[in-house]
Design a protein around this nucleic acid. Structure first.
Lengths: 197, 197
DNA sequence: CAACCTTTACTTACTCGTCAGTAAGTTTAT
DNA sequence: ATAAACTTACTGACGAGTAAGTAAAGGTTG
């Protein structure tokens, strides 16, 4: 792995753990084992490094989503949800970064990333439209459906510690802390049920 | 309104708009029309001010949720979702603060707030249990249901600008930008449908 | 083949702005 | 008179960004 790739990897860890503002390039440099100026050799500024992290992840995700065969609406919707979920499981840093970006109103999302998000939404929209044409689904606002899929999953990831606190407060509630992997097919079934005519 | 209340109000605006780190007490002081040191007269430090903002909001929400009559599960669940939605509509600053807090893993949520969140979850859990007892709902993980309710709504609020960008990218997708008010009953119906046996 | 540029990939050591937090003094109400 | 509610003017730290220098690798020319 090149130094540049290593910088992106470590930076994505820090951006994920503490957020853009609290992540310092001194820390990133230290962990990579280079000087801070080395980061500035590879990236124009802190934000450019953040863009590199973001774009690499959104690019991978868009590729996966694009491959989904949208001819069978219900199967396609399940695959859409499970592919997204699997991506979150595979890339543990992505959830927190994505969640913060949405919470922030995607204020500093580079155009190339929002374009790839748009493509994902276009795929979802097509699945929903096909389902509507076959009288399987009601007419829906695709952005709202996107929110129903994406936000519970990313925030389930980010709120592990909160669940522990809540469980300590409410001893009568059990089995709250299920793994994300087990949540995904459950959420997929619920969303499909909710959208079916 | 006292100076202290005014400081909380203005601070909640800034925390909501730019987040904890980027919100500066100089800006808050300027807008309130006091000196920065006046803030330190009322609050120990920046974080104590943030706690005050958070606690006042979570306190109000917990009061509203607590009043819900949980004897009729389906009506109660609808009321739970619509009450939460109405709260977001009424308190425009709350969505972004809550969304950031969840994205952050609720790392710096004061114990009093997480206690009130626990009470909300307890209410939801009771509604779901009653529904289960009457064979209306399947057995569910209440935290996951909470995520399904809370996260789409708060993030729908925070992503208004993102929707505009996406709409500009995909001209064939129309009517994405519906008001939050119109989304709430729709989401409530979908979640109830998803949870019903 | 060797003395010479040139580029790549960095390092060391610094500046400079910002912002949380404070010390000490001042006004206002009771 | 004295406590509450401030103000002015400051400090100190942190962290983004930079200037200037260097070591090594590769290419060019006499």
């Amino acid at each position: 792995m090149s130094k540049k790739e290593k910088i992106i990897k470590v930076a994505s860890k820090y951006f994920s753990e503490v957020g853009y503002d609290k992540a310092t390039l001194d820390d990133v440099a230290k962990e990579v084992g280079v000087s801070k100026a080395a980061i500035y050799y590879h990236f124009k500024d802190k934000f450019a490094l953040y863009e590199a992290v973001l774009c690499s992840r959104f690019g991978e995700l868009a590729k996966i989503i694009d491959k989904i065969d949208d001819s069978k609406p219900i199967e396609a919707l399940r695959e859409y949800i499970e592919s997204f979920g699997k991506f979150l499981v595979d890339k543990p840093c992505f959830s927190a970064i994505f969640a913060r970006e949405l919470a922030d109103g995607a204020m500093n999302m580079p155009a190339s990333c929002s374009k790839q998000m748009s493509l994902n939404l276009q795929k979802l929209s097509k699945i929903l439209q096909n389902g509507e044409a076959e009288n399987l689904f009601e007419k829906e606002n695709p952005f709202m459906v996107q929110m129903m899929i994406v936000t519970p999953l990313i925030n389930y990831r980010t709120t592990k510690k909160l669940r522990e606190v809540v469980m300590a407060n409410l001893k009568d509630i059990k089995n709250i802390d299920v793994d994300l992997e087990d949540i995904i097919p459950n959420l997929a079934s619920k969303i499909i049920k909710a959208l079916k005519c």
